[in-house]
Design a protein around this nucleic acid. Structure first.
Lengths: 241, 241
DNA sequence: CGTGTTGTTGAACTGTCTCAAGGACGGTGG
DNA sequence: CCACCGTCCTTGAGACAGTTCAACAACACG
């Protein structure tokens, strides 16, 4: 996998158009376009940047020495990630699961936002607190649920955030590989594959060319202990935005 | 356990002394003194309060219908908890593991802080981001570590936050019951007890009357995959404060 | 069309859970 | 001061979910 490159943060920079600040509430920052699998190291230096996900799906990865990678969370458009959420030593990085665009704000930029753009600050705060709630749900899933339930929770999450209604059910592209999903769900890839197979043969889900289709959404939510909480949370943001 | 009572938030209120605001950076709010095991429901209404832990140790608990309680995180003095971190539907609550004092700020109070007390706002922000990093570590522990490692991670956390140096090692009172620790570590109490027994018989830890003594701290850190990260994180705050 | 990567499946193994019994401890009342 | 009680903790034996290892199938890419 020599293709998964590390690109200096400073590469491919351009300023967002200040004109548009009042329309989409995004103020000038540094725009990072990312290819699939491109990685943005979250270095442990004390500078606390914020990354705002404009488009695409990202993973937050941790790598401890001598240990398997973990996928700590998944980011969707609208999410804000604070560098300081990942303690140094975890070897954390953002990885684009799909082509993506990130807006990056340095501490100075953030201070300026505090002072001059309360509206945008509100948006950052609400993105942050939404993500925080989602992290709580993921922790709850990892520590309270079985393998099947964890996968169901995951599928509900993906369905809500990147799925579209399709003939009564929902369907979405799965942007993570099996191994990445396994790392996100704290399962091993073999086990995950088995659970996927069970779901497929029970008709709960169909997968073709990386696209998942859930014909009966409520059947899925019945397997997911956190479906209700995830749905509430998701709808809540859409209402705000 | 009829003794574990639910007390209305409004009970036992008094204002902190405004005079002291410049000394300890705590501005007026509502002070809640809590008995051991007293519970503060984190209702799902959209009002986003912040609780600031003044003294004591608290658990953040979640109860899904039909499921065992989970302990999502542990709070120590200095920590700030935002109501919105726990999605409704999780049945979340704060529970005092020791007698504790909480300072509560309502949304209006927070807005006032924003405007008039940037110093205190900074303190809240830094408390929040510190806790966020600790949550990341806990997730990493739950999803990447074995039972033994999880317990070691827990003991390191407790040792750092509420322990004191004692003849070369560290010792601290364990404020949680076995069952509560199990719920925090996503283990079952029997399994946890077995691991504790192994640790005791290997001399890693000694427990008497609820007080744990770790004679060789570095031996413990060697069992805890996250010890280094926890230590860095902990020291970092002490440096800031 | 090979060739490498990613996904699937089987069989054996292991850590954790379950259930049930017994032990330790702290509080209470005789 | 001791006997009793309830609660919490410990321990064993068996069951089960998830892991490991290895072989193979499917797929994507040049």
């Amino acid at each position: 996998m020599s293709d998964r490159m590390t690109t200096p943060i400073s590469a491919q920079v351009r300023s967002a158009n200040p004109e548009s600040a009042n329309i989409t509430p995004v103020i000038p920052g540094v725009l990072l376009p990312l290819r699939k699998q491109q990685r943005v190291p979250l270095s442990q230096k004390p500078s606390d940047h914020i990354f705002l996900v404009m488009t695409g799906v990202l993973m937050v990865e941790a790598r401890l020495p001598e240990r398997n990678r973990q996928v700590l969370e998944i980011l969707f458009p609208g999410d804000a990630y604070h560098t300081q959420d990942a303690p140094g030593r975890l070897g954390a990085a953002l990885i684009a699961s799909t082509p993506a665009e990130l807006q990056r704000y340095r501490p100075e930029a953030l201070e300026a936002i505090e002072r001059n753009n309360p509206e945008f600050r509100k948006r950052l705060e609400s993105a942050t607190s939404h993500r925080s709630a989602r992290r709580t749900l993921h922790l709850a899933s990892m520590s309270g649920a079985s393998g099947e339930e964890r996968l169901a929770d995951f599928l509900v999450e993906m369905g809500l955030y990147i799925g579209r209604e399709a003939q009564g059910g929902r369907s979405f592209d799965i942007p993570l590989s099996r191994e990445e999903i396994a790392d996100y769900l704290a399962l091993n890839p073999d086990t995950l594959s088995r659970i996927f197979s069970r779901f497929k043969s029970s008709g709960l889900i169909a997968i073709s060319r990386g696209r998942a289709t859930v014909p009966d959404w409520s059947a899925l939510t019945r397997l997911s202990p956190l479906a209700a909480a995830q749905t509430d949370l998701h709808d809540q943001v859409r209402a705000t935005a």
